[in-house]
Design a protein around this nucleic acid. Structure first.
Lengths: 158, 158
DNA sequence: CACGAAATGTTAAGATGTTCAGCATTGTGA
DNA sequence: TCACAATGCTGAACATCTTAACATTTCGTG
């Protein structure tokens, strides 16, 4: 009776919901160790690839620089990481995992993997593979073509 | 040389990145109207299904109740919605779109649909359909089985 | 060397997410 | 009717997101 928009798919909504469903498996684990989602992402990153600049952490962990600043300060205060300026280019900040950070990461990792296995069992290995493939492609979407958007846009930007 | 974990897929990461890639298409549009992502989700919801209780808004828009409280206050202050208590059960809060809210929603909707079409064109209609199917299934993951998680867990619950 | 542009982080301000606690209202059973 | 649990929303505290503006350092070029 209302034949609304042809296919109002709500892709962002579904991506959000799906992420929530998945994170529900990991969140209790991380909470138990007093870690946030973002902190865990950073720790795994540094454990996998070694120390790196803040900018690279931001890119790989999907965290915007202003957020990262505070997160790294708190993580250093918690003894999880070290922060130091690059000697040759003092604009850059080098981030590395501390000894305790590494220990904790390697303690949590197997439990995290176990959570992942549960998800895989429920969802199916093949479908999971398929989904990851599609997501990877979707991530490569070209940036949108700078649409004016609102009613009142500027006359000439420069 | 390091043959780490067998398949460290990072599903949550991919869901996050994919969502970012998609939202990049919608964000400028909403920003142009001074709306946040969450506000827009709520407006579309109310436009589609009419007034409803706050709890239902929270569920359908994937917003936790404590966040929703503030969001609704700001939206009412901005003249986008109305808030009123249910007469028969004064615990419940009924939320409805205001006249201006409805007008704005219907003004933005076609532009939002246009963004969506762009994404569909880039990504492919078939793959999009397939992805949405998988996401919908993933959303139905059973809640995790209450894992003890951390080092210090409780002895016996119940 | 001087100057301006680019690169890299950080601050600031407002909005939202997340968890836990509280408050009011309602439903239920003795 | 009264105690008591359940429901629905709000408050508080902290962490993060988002955008814009700033500070510092480095680079490119004259």
């Amino acid at each position: 009776m209302d034949m609304q928009r042809p296919h109002q798919h709500r892709l962002p909504q579904h991506l959000l919901r799906a992420r929530e469903a998945v994170m529900a498996y990991f969140r209790p684990l991380l909470n138990g160790y007093g870690l946030t989602e973002q902190q865990w992402r950073i720790m795994r990153l540094l454990d996998d690839r070694g120390e790196m600049e803040a900018g690279m952490v931001a890119d790989l962990a999907c965290i915007l620089p202003p957020s990262l600043t505070g997160i790294l300060v708190r993580m250093e205060k918690a003894g999880l990481i070290h922060r130091r300026k690059d000697k040759s280019d003092s604009r850059r900040l080098i981030v590395s995992l501390s000894a305790e950070g590494r220990t904790l990461t390697q303690q949590i990792s197997p439990q995290s993997a176990a959570c992942y296995e549960q998800i895989e069992q429920h969802f199916g290995e093949d479908k999971l593979e398929q989904l990851l493939q599609l997501l990877t492609e979707l991530e490569q979407l070209p940036a949108p073509a700078a649409q004016p958007a609102a009613a009142e846009e500027e006359a000439a930007a420069d």
